[in-house]
Design a protein around this nucleic acid. Sequence first.
DNA 1: GATATTTTATGATAAAAATCATATTTAAGA
DNA 2: TCTTAAATATGATTTTTATCATAAAATATC
Lengths: 143, 143
Amino acid sequence: MFSNTAKYAIKACLFLAVNSSEVNKLVIKDIAEPINVPSAYIAKILQALSKKDIISSTRGPKGGFYLTGDQLQTKVMQIIEAVDGEERLNSCLLSLEKCNSDNPCSLHHLVFDEKNKINERLKKTTLEDLRQHIMRGESILPL
Amino acid sequence: MFSNTAKYAIKACLFLAVNSSEVNKLVIKDIAEPINVPSAYIAKILQALSKKDIISSTRGPKGGFYLTGDQLQTKVMQIIEAVDGEERLNSCLLSLEKCNSDNPCSLHHLVFDEKNKINERLKKTTLEDLRQHIMRGESILPL
DNA sequence: GATATTTTATGATAAAAATCATATTTAAGA
DNA sequence: TCTTAAATATGATTTTTATCATAAAATATC
């Protein structure tokens, strides 16, 4: 459903949401190992997220990655779009240009409402929301 | 959401459902062109579907592809599984093995019910259902 | 300022998915 | 039985995605 890159990005952001702060930066290795993603790969993803200001970083000794308070308000959808580009989730199931609610493709009715609901949630849910969920023990930190 | 291969497979099956029959077989070119898929590619997909008995074929002159009455009862999900392999649609969003309803990953609640609903529909809906929908003008044949 | 530690930029390689090409087999019809 | 029209089998190529590698730039600390 998501690309590996998007999944890894979400995992990394959540890991940062739970474990990092401006005074507790994490170095690539300390992210890659626990979330179980090859470190050279996650490094590249973190760079992209950092460039898009979804996460923060400073280089040099004592440097690393972390999230600011603002960045805890990032929506899950923004993370996905940052790494995968937009509309991966918004197009018709069959990728038909002509398909829309007025002129639905054959599968349209089967998925439309549910797909919308999922998308709405991804657009609304923030890292902070997920972090709190994890803190309360209502879901697990994906590792 | 689906692979190109799965999308093309669904399009081709629907096209056959609407336009073919045991006495009106369609040749690759007559499928590939209208549904707008490269013919060498759709040929390969049709071969796979035929081998799994989701569509029928006969070779030689007057040969071609078609659906039997039974095959009109094929579920959309079966088509997807035939070409993509199973479980592409059944795994956790983040592909976590440990994630399930008892031990949900952070995104689990955001998608679980809707994903299930979609999957249920894909498992229930037959080509014949979709064909009738199209015949009644309630949806378009995806081209 | 020199050094060490970190991210950043860049690009190389590997694997998977999509696409293209073609020789072989089958069956109809002359 | 020969020819022709079709699917089938097989595999090559291209494109995309995933992964790996490394030199350059930045910054803290001595």
